[in-house]
Design a protein around this nucleic acid. Sequence first.
DNA 1: TCTAGTTTACTGGTCAGGCCACGTCGCGCG
DNA 2: CGCGCGACGTGGCCTGACCAGTAAACTAGA
Lengths: 255, 255
Amino acid sequence: MTEGTHFQRVRPVRLYQDIVDQIESAIARGALKPGGRLPSERELVAQFGASRATVREALRVLEAHGVVRSRPGQPSGPEVLSFSPDSLANQMTRLVQLDGMSLTDLLAFRMVIDGAASRLAARLHTPEQRDAMERSIAAMEQAIETGYDEFSEADVAFHDAIAQASRNAMIQVCNNVVRGVVLQVIEDKVRRAFDSEALMRESLQHHRDVFEAISTGDGEAASRIARQKLYDYYAGYVPEEDRAGILALLDVEPP
Amino acid sequence: MTEGTHFQRVRPVRLYQDIVDQIESAIARGALKPGGRLPSERELVAQFGASRATVREALRVLEAHGVVRSRPGQPSGPEVLSFSPDSLANQMTRLVQLDGMSLTDLLAFRMVIDGAASRLAARLHTPEQRDAMERSIAAMEQAIETGYDEFSEADVAFHDAIAQASRNAMIQVCNNVVRGVVLQVIEDKVRRAFDSEALMRESLQHHRDVFEAISTGDGEAASRIARQKLYDYYAGYVPEEDRAGILALLDVEPP
DNA sequence: TCTAGTTTACTGGTCAGGCCACGTCGCGCG
DNA sequence: CGCGCGACGTGGCCTGACCAGTAAACTAGA
């Protein structure tokens, strides 16, 4: 920033916003710990010197931000929520949905995330995580005869295990978000397509390949196979003219 | 889901939440378009049959969700905001900050995102975007004598140009978010370290390398160099025992 | 007629006070 | 000792009101 007469736009400060800021910064600096409770609404009215309506509007905002939850009857006041990445994932999912991201962008992004997760998992996985992956694959195999729902569930578990093994919270969050949104967008189509044993077997084999690469520590291969697999299954659902941007994520030479 | 007696937890429905849901789904299905206006608060009171306090609480939530904005005096009622990825980025930034992500996770994630963006940019960039990158590099060169602030600004512009060239909205958003949060966490340290001409020249050269790889269409190299560069500059700020997880993202063999 | 200032009708922001349903806790009854 | 029932405090919601703005309608002046 340059020095001197560089003023900032004045904005009318809203009381409820001030309350939100105060409480959030109290949480951020640790004065209010997750699991703890806020004073009751009427108590906050006294402390902030605002009306109850105003305090309540602030509480609604805090609730929307996911940092607080208030339930009726609780004698100890609103609850300060702990910050699990889950809440981040939930909020992010809502935003991505509302934002109307294109399936193309989502798929490409998922390839990036899943590829990176697989690469990291190959280097960093613990024996327990390896077992979890193996169990998920076994569950997928069993589910071939049970049905798509169980198969899909095991598939999710497998990818979750990989994301966990990546030891990166951001990747785990993005993984959850983007998988959820993608599946939601094309769930019925996928369900129809996948309701054949052949496709499930093929998918199972691909998962085995990824698992093989991960457990031998070959991050490069794990990443490549994971991306390729996603492309193979989902590219059919994105407009043809958009596929170039996704192909660039595979390790194929340009035509 | 299995068939049969699988009930769902009943939850007391709150009026303001109902209003939020109705308005958000109206936006989601296109009945309410960005740029349009909501009815005035008193009008909403009539339509929903709720009190103004309740309607206002709903509006606060919607505002926190970033889908509307209400300002006093506007005769046409609250404004329905357009969904720029910017709003997604803003909200995500707030969440990531509050969640207290570790610098390690953030840095690794940034390497993933920036690497993917560079790879895509190499294949997909337009001549205009190439020019924008070139201009940013020129600005960086000039800024070496001006100061760190200008240098940093040009640096941001360069990475933005790459993210744009990736043509992937999710990557652009994540790029913005994670860069912002990382810089915020260690801004002062970086500022001190970077206030030497030598480091800025080195950084400039690295950017030139990335640019070179992108403009010749070598996505693999662009991605690798981008990740390496981030590692070199920031790895010093993460705890030593965490670096293994980041190293796995570089194309070096395990020891 | 056209402009400039003023009125007016609305907006959102805030307040005070009140009612209700529902948890929690403790007291007293069996 | 255990159990049920009340009192108390909580959040959810409502009514009705006042204020400070904005913008459009209106009116007085050139």
